[in-house]
């Protein structure tokens, strides 16, 4: 079968190109970014906890006053030793709490740290903080990319939720081929499995879209209904982006959803 052999070779080459092309251009990078984003917060928290715990040896009272990890790390990285925690300097970061902080620094029960240790600690704090900056930058990137790749879908879902859904399903094409009910539940795999194993546990009503602001504007008992409407509109949006004319219908869909949310208040 020499013809089939030739055809096979040609089709392998062609398919390779097609895969490469589709992979190279569209959604791969935003999918990566969305997956990194989901890892960034836990990574930040892990480092932050370590740094805060460590710094506690020097200035244990600070933990009780400053609860926000990011703020705490900014203080450590900028000011270092607690003797630098004057009302004025702490105020630049911690605002109204500055007085309390300065006061606590004055009568702290923490031990003195060597200069080397302090260098390490400040570096750790500022590295952890850089993960926060990375997150902001990544969110901007995702926002821009999602609006380029799937403008209607990004409009209705919100770029971040949209990106998570896209990452979960693997490609825009796959996403566009899902029924509305699947979009509604995308990201609820664990809850779905729990329900399938044990039917007495209620099935989930929403996955990633749980984070959608409109879902929180309706009465609790109506959330399932709202989620269903949202799933349906997302389905239209993503299909228009992938198969359709790329006509701009996102705003219109979103307005319809806002109306629906008012009814379900």
């Amino acid at each position: 079968m020499p013809e089939i052999e030739q055809l096979r070779k040609a089709l392998i080459r062609k398919t390779r190109e097609q895969v490469k092309e589709r992979y190279g251009e569209r959604e791969v990078h935003v999918i990566r970014a969305a997956s990194v984003l989901q890892d960034l917060d836990p990574a930040f928290n892990l480092l932050a906890e370590q740094a805060i715990e460590w710094y506690g040896a020097h200035f244990p009272e600070l933990q009780r006053i400053v609860k926000d990890n990011e703020r705490f790390l900014q203080l450590v990285s900028k000011l270092g030793e607690r003797k630098n925690f004057t009302k004025e300097k702490a105020g630049e970061i911690a605002g109204e709490k500055a007085g309390e902080i300065a006061d606590a620094a004055g009568k702290s029960m923490g031990s003195e740290l060597g200069a080397d240790t302090m260098v390490e600690l400040r570096a750790l704090a500022s590295n952890a903080l850089s993960l926060r900056q990375e997150r902001v930058a990544l969110e901007k990137f995702i926002d821009k990319e999602m609006r380029r790749i799937a403008p209607n879908f990004a409009e209705v879902a919100g770029p971040l939720i949209g990106a998570k859904m896209l990452a979960e399903s693997g490609s825009l094409q796959h996403l566009a081929m899902q029924p509305a009910s699947t979009l509604q539940l995308l990201g609820a795999k664990k809850a779905l499995f729990r329900h399938m194993k044990n039917k007495s546990i209620k099935g989930p009503k929403y996955g990633f879209i749980y984070q959608h602001p409109l879902l929180h504007k309706v009465a609790l008992k109506n959330r399932g209904k709202m989620a269903r409407s949202l799933g349906a509109k997302l389905c239209i949006a993503v299909r228009t982006d992938f198969f359709g004319s790329r006509k701009k219908i996102g705003e219109e869909l979103l307005r319809a959803l806002e109306e629906r949310a008012k009814q379900l208040k």
Binding site: R8, I12, V19, H174, M177
Partner: peptide, 13 residues
């Protein structure tokens, strides 16, 4: 239709 599965499939071909 899925390029995702195609990558593996091509190598089998």
């Amino acid at each position: 239709v899925s390029e995702r599965v195609m990558r593996k499939f091509i190598s089998i071909c």
